[in-house]
Amino acid sequence: MKTTATLTAAIALMTGAPVLAQSYDVETLAEGLDQPWAMTFLPDGGDILMTAKGGTFLLYDAGSGEVSALDGAPDVSTAGQGGLLDVALAPDFADNNVIYMTWAGSVTGGTTTHLGRGTLDTEAGTVTEIETLFQVSPGIDSTAHYGSRIVIHDGHIYMGTGDRAFKDFGPDHIAQDLSSENGSVIRLRLDGTVPDDNPFVDTQGAAPAIWSYGHRNIQAMTLHPDTSEIWLAEHGEAGGDEINIVARGENFGWPLAAYGVDYRTGEQFAPTHQDADGFAAPAYHWGPGRDDHFPPSGMTFYDGDAFPDWQGHLLVGNLFQQYIGVFPVDGAQVSDPERVLDGAGYRIRDVAVGPEDGYIYVLTDGEDAPLLRLVPAQG
Rank of each mutant, 00 (worst) to 15 (best):
Pro308Lys: 00
Ser180Tyr: 04
Arg248Leu: 13
His224Gly: 07
Thr51Glu: 09
Leu372Gln: 08
Met1His: 07
Met39Leu: 14
Lys53Phe: 05
Thr40Trp: 00
Ile324Asn: 14
Gly366Ile: 02
Phe134Glu: 08
Thr119Ile: 02
Val340Tyr: 14
Asp121Arg: 11
Asp365Asn: 02
Thr40His: 03
Phe279Arg: 09
Leu115Tyr: 09
Thr15Gly: 08
Ala238Asn: 15
Ser23Cys: 01
Glu242Cys: 01
Arg187Ala: 02
Thr40Gln: 08
Gly155Met: 12
Asp197Gln: 08
Ala17Met: 11
Val67Thr: 00
His114Glu: 06
Val334Pro: 01
Tyr361Asn: 04
Val127His: 08
Phe41Ser: 03
Ser106Arg: 05
Thr108Ala: 04
Tyr24Glu: 03
Thr108Leu: 02
Met101Lys: 02
Val185Cys: 13
Leu42Asp: 09
Gly55Phe: 08
Gln333His: 13
Asp86Ile: 02
Pro296Glu: 04
Val194Thr: 01
Leu49Ile: 02
Met39Asp: 01
Asp202Ala: 12
Asp47Cys: 04
Gly260Val: 06
Gly80Ile: 06
Leu178His: 11
Val98Arg: 14
Thr193Phe: 04
Thr102Gln: 06
Asp86Leu: 09
Ala38Glu: 02
Phe294Lys: 06
Val185Glu: 10
Gly289Thr: 05
Leu341Asp: 10
Asp336Ala: 09
Ile210Asn: 04
Val362Ala: 01
Glu250Ile: 09
Ile360Met: 03
Thr102Cys: 10
Ala144Trp: 08
Gln311His: 01
Tyr60Cys: 01
Gln333Lys: 07
Val194Met: 00
